[in-house]
């Protein structure tokens, strides 16, 4: 890893000010993507701004029928949050499936969604539940947050501060994990929300996407059979050493069926 300067601000204002002053800065949260990327010299920032000590980014709370997760909340915090577990158990379970135990003790939701790895789990929950991302500048609906591979709606220097997940009537997430990394080869989040059905798929394409045909079918009949006959086209899906595009397309239907069955309890 190339040399850099390290900063540890206590407030969002101080962090933003530092970001504006440094030549090529990056925010550092849990560091479980950024540090490996720097070790590989795929990133070489001049300055790391460690935001782990900013109180405003911490915590998981339930307010007005939504679970609000601070950007600095670790996956373990979400997985173990009694409030989240009671309000949106599918979200707590998803957080508990990310990486391994030690990774969940460091990685944060803000870091995960700002990175927008195509195989990350959280994007499926954000889009599947119709969440809202709050930044230090504005609020962004999850549907518009993940435009493409490793891309987000964030502007240069814009910092995620929290994610608000509305409580659904019922929801579940099922993933087919890579057995080594636990990244999703395909993960499907199904939610019967107050504002309609949502089916969000991660791992299969360049970024998370919704399957409208499944959402319409589930609106008519919320059962695994309703989605069993819906095949999604393999065009544009990821194809790599872990799984070919046609296999991923097949897994979307399988995981969707399992998620609906799980949501039904």
């Amino acid at each position: 890893m190339y040399a850099f300067r390290y900063h540890r601000p206590d407030t969002l204002d101080a962090a933003a000010r530092l970001f504006g002053e440094c030549e090529d800065p990056r925010y550092l949260s849990g560091g479980h993507t950024l540090l490996p990327t720097m070790k590989l010299r795929l990133a070489a920032p001049t300055d790391l701004i460690d935001i782990a000590h900013i109180e405003a980014l911490k915590g998981v709370r339930v307010e007005d029928g939504a679970v609000v997760v601070g950007a600095g909340a670790r996956h373990a915090d979400v997985a173990r949050s009694p409030g989240c577990g009671a309000a949106i158990p599918a979200l707590a379970e998803l957080a508990g499936m990310i990486g391994d135990f030690q990774v969940r003790n460091r990685g944060t939701i803000g870091g995960s969604i700002a990175n927008a790895d195509p195989a990350a789990d959280y994007p499926a929950a954000l889009v599947g539940l119709g969440a809202t991302v709050t930044t230090d500048r504005r609020a962004v609906p999850a549907d518009g947050f993940f435009p493409d591979l490793f891309e987000t709606a964030l502007e240069e220097g814009e910092l995620v501060t929290a994610v608000a997940f509305p409580k659904p009537r019922r929801a579940a997430y099922m993933k087919f994990p890579n057995p080594a990394s636990r990244y999703a080869i395909v993960g499907v989040f199904v939610a019967d929300t107050g504002a309609g059905m949502r089916v969000a798929v991660t791992g299969a394409g360049p970024c998370v996407f919704r399957v409208r045909e499944m959402e319409e079918a589930l609106t008519r009949d919320f059962s695994p059979d309703a989605v069993a006959g819906i095949a999604i086209p393999e065009d544009g899906l990821n194809s790599d050493i872990h799984a070919a595009a046609d296999y991923r397309a097949h897994l979307v239907t399988v995981m969707a069926k399992r998620a609906v069955a799980k949501a039904l309890g």
Binding site: P36, D50, Q102, R106
Partner: peptide
């Protein structure tokens, strides 16, 4: 490389000493 930081197990190859 697992060690405990404030009681939580973490992989110390992916944490900066300054963190």
């Amino acid at each position: 490389c697992v060690v405990l930081i404030d009681g939580d197990s973490v992989k110390s190859c992916t944490v900066l000493a300054l963190q």
